[in-house]
Simulated assay, not measured.
Amino acid sequence: MRALAMALPEAEEALNGAQIAYSVGGKGFAWAYVARPAPKARRVLVPGVFAVRCRIETKEMLIEAAPDRFFDDDHYRGYPAVLVRLAEIEAEELAGLLREAWRIVEPKAVGGLTGKRTRGGSVVGGCQTRRSPCSDFPISQSLLEPSPSKAEN
């Protein structure tokens, strides 16, 4: 996870105890998942699970297509991030998901690396021009058949 996230332009890692978060320009694109074990209980770190920013449509598609890898909880319901079980996802698939998350939050100054942003948030002259929400990461085959290479924490 760390190597994939930190390979993105101007990515930063922040540590808060055991909780890790990755951001660009001060905006988070992936972070360690913390959950409440019971209502009103203090949130605790869930090892091996990260929240990764994505579009709601992408989140819904991922959860429906591969619930063993992607899921949601009450706290994240309606929020543009999907929960990812790192032990169940291929490194290539995770890298694509992180690239898309990075593109969603990239600041304008960094946007020049991938193209110019338009008002609607799409990128012109770069990697994200009028594509389906999931076209930038390779999930189609990996959703159908598991692979021996899995992403590491």
Rank of each mutant, 00 (worst) to 15 (best):
A109S: 13
A101I: 02
R131G: 13
E60M: 09
K116A: 11
L62H: 08
D73A: 06
L143I: 13
V110N: 03
E88W: 01
D74K: 11
S132D: 11
A51H: 04
E100N: 09
T58Q: 10
I89C: 03
R55G: 10
V124L: 13
E57A: 12
W102D: 05
A91Q: 06
R131D: 05
E100A: 08
C127I: 11
L86P: 02
I139W: 10
C127T: 15
A66K: 07
H75D: 05
C134Y: 12
E90P: 04
D68E: 15
E93I: 00
L94G: 02
D73P: 09
E106F: 05
I56V: 10
I63M: 09
C54Y: 02
C127K: 14
M61Y: 10
G96T: 02
Q128P: 00
E88D: 10
R119N: 12
T129H: 11
E64H: 12
R103V: 13
G112P: 00
E106N: 06
P80F: 01
A87C: 05
F137D: 13
G111E: 13
G111I: 00
Q141K: 14
V84S: 01
G120V: 11
D74E: 15
E145T: 14
V124M: 12
S140G: 14
D72F: 00
E60W: 01
A66Q: 05
D136L: 15
R130S: 10
I89S: 03
L98K: 05
A51C: 14
E145W: 13
Q128C: 15
E57W: 01
K116F: 07
E57S: 11
S140L: 09
G125R: 04
L97I: 07
G120Y: 11
D73R: 03
R69H: 02
C127Y: 05
R55H: 09
A81P: 01
Y76E: 12
L98D: 03
R85A: 14
R69L: 07
D68T: 15
E88C: 12
F50Y: 14
I139V: 04
D68P: 01
I89D: 00
R117V: 05
K116G: 03
R53M: 08
Y76M: 15
S142T: 07
G78V: 10
E93D: 03
V123Y: 03
R85C: 09
I63A: 04
A51N: 07
V123H: 00
G96V: 04
K108C: 06
E64D: 08
E60G: 06
R130E: 13
A101D: 04
C54M: 07
T118W: 00
D72Q: 13
G111F: 03
A91S: 11
E100Q: 14
A81E: 05
Q128F: 15
F71M: 07
L143Q: 14
G126V: 09
A91C: 01
V124N: 07
S132M: 11
G96M: 02
I63E: 06
A109V: 12
R53Q: 09
V124D: 04
R99P: 04
F137T: 12
I139E: 05
